[in-house]
């Protein structure tokens, strides 16, 4: 195999790959936005919510962590619309699944971070006469977020990687485009390797950022 030829071949399909990457990033970003908000909410509910809400939140988290994302996608694509008796739209089903999945895995990260703030920090807030309107935004929240950031970022990488599954329900993401081109041209090696590399570069840079953040900020503060 000739590298120049391979690169030239890939260059011909750059637009298709680019569109696929755009969709992958779009699905991931929307899933992240809704998922993180949901995850934080669920972690708070599991910490301080009404007992009934706590049970609901726990069941939700366990179901989405305890089943393959692929079956979740299939369920929201084929079962939910039938149950509701209405069309949901493929993009909506995709984004809904990814958001719910992200909500479940990130809620665990938030929960661990909330737990890690010891009761001693809360005692200090009382001893300094800090009311909740001060202690929550200035003491509890910043520490929760700073502690949660490394695991949340790896949750993001997980979601980014899991988003490749949407190709199985026909969404035109990077994986889907790669497979389509591979099938159409019968040259899977170049195109699948390129696809893998694109995923790798993005996921790897985020992972490195996490390590850097942990080393520079968290260790300095001994959080």
């Amino acid at each position: 195999m000739n590298i120049t030829a391979a690169l030239g071949f890939l260059w011909d399909y750059r637009l298709a790959l680019f569109i696929g990457l755009g969709n992958t990033l779009y699905f991931t970003a929307v899933g992240l936005a809704f998922g993180l908000a949901l995850g934080f909410l669920v972690s708070v509910v599991r910490q301080v919510g009404h007992p009934v809400l706590k049970v609901i939140a726990t069941v939700y988290v366990e179901i989405f962590r305890g089943t393959p994302v692929l079956i979740q996608l299939f369920w929201f694509f084929f079962c939910l619309p039938a149950l509701l008796g209405m069309e949901l739209g493929n993009v909506f089903s995709t984004v809904l699944t990814l958001s719910l999945y992200m909500g479940a895995i990130s809620s665990e990260s938030f929960r661990a971070a909330l737990k890690a703030i010891g009761s001693e920090q809360r005692d200090a807030c009382v001893a300094l006469g800090l009311p909740a309107r001060v202690s929550v935004p200035y003491v509890i929240l910043p520490q929760t977020v700073m502690r949660a950031v490394p695991t949340l970022l790896s949750n993001c990488v997980t979601l980014f990687k899991e988003s490749a599954l949407v190709s199985a329900v026909g969404m035109a993401d990077l994986m889907y485009q790669g497979q389509m081109i591979a099938d159409a041209t019968a040259r899977p090696i170049e195109i699948l390797t390129a696809t893998a590399l694109i995923y790798f570069v993005i996921a790897f840079s985020v992972t490195r950022t996490v390590t850097f953040y942990e080393r520079s900020y968290l260790s300095r503060m001994r959080l």
Binding site: E120, Q121, D123, A124, A127, V139, P142, Q143, M146, M221, R222, L223
Partner: peptide, 10 residues
């Protein structure tokens, strides 16, 4: 003042 300082680390 507490045994474990309880300064806000951030």
């Amino acid at each position: 003042v507490f045994q474990h300082y309880t300064l806000f680390p951030h």
